[in-house]
Structure formats: structure tokens, C-alpha cells
Amino acid sequence: MVVFADIAAKTVLAWDGALKWPQEHLDDLCALAAQVLAIGVGVDPAAEPQTAILARATGCFVFVRAAPGANEALCCVFAPYCDIDNTFAAGKALCSDLLGGDQRMKA
């Protein structure tokens, strides 16, 4: 599952995935991204997290802020043991595409 969201407004902007999630699950994912990426925000702009991973028994959540200081973030849910390092690069590229005007999800 991949969701592109405005984490400040907690609004889902676009999503794609193998399964169709109910809206409330997408909203929960958006809120989770806001919560995790908020750790450290507002203290030192240079230290503000741009990426975050939340690994839990139910899956691995990967969050990529679209750009430094941006409210938009890509929120992905993967199975445990996924290749996260490659996900970051793909996520950043996807964010550039989305913020560059191509609003159609390619993930």
C-alpha cells in the first residue's frame, strides 16, 4: 500500500495498493505518518526527520517526506523483511514526480 498524504492537514491525496483499504485505514496511516515524522520537528530544522521507518509485528511502515519542510509525505506499508533501503530512493523519486505535477500514482 502506498499513500501520498498531507500530514499537516491529515488528508489523503492519493493512494495505490494491492488491496483496497477503507478510508478510515488510510486516515489512520496518515495520522501514524504525522506522529512518527513529528518526532524531532521544530527543534533544529537540519535535524528534522525526512524519512522514518516504523517496524511492528503487523508490517513495516515507511514514511518519506516529499521535500525538506514539506507537509506532503509518502506512506508505504510493506511486509516484514522488505528491502527498505531501495524503497527510500524509489519513494523520493516518486515524491519528485508527484510534486512536479504528475498526480497519477506510478507505484
Binding site: V43, D44, A46, A47, P49, Q50, T51, A52, R56
Partner: peptide, 24 residues
């Protein structure tokens, strides 16, 4: 990252039985 370090022991910030990795 966190001026008030005690927030890190709150399970609302770092959930129980979870791993969080932050990158800049």
C-alpha cells in the same frame, strides 16, 4: 531531536514493541 527526552519513554511517542528509525 527531542529537547524533552522523557517524551521518548512515553509509549505514545515510541510504541511498545516497535522499532523506529529516523533519517535526515
Amino acid at each position: 531531536l527531542v529537547p524533552d527526552i522523557e517524551t521518548l519513554t512515553s509509549r505514545a511517542t515510541i510504541p511498545e514493541d516497535a522499532l523506529i528509525v529516523l533519517g535526515t
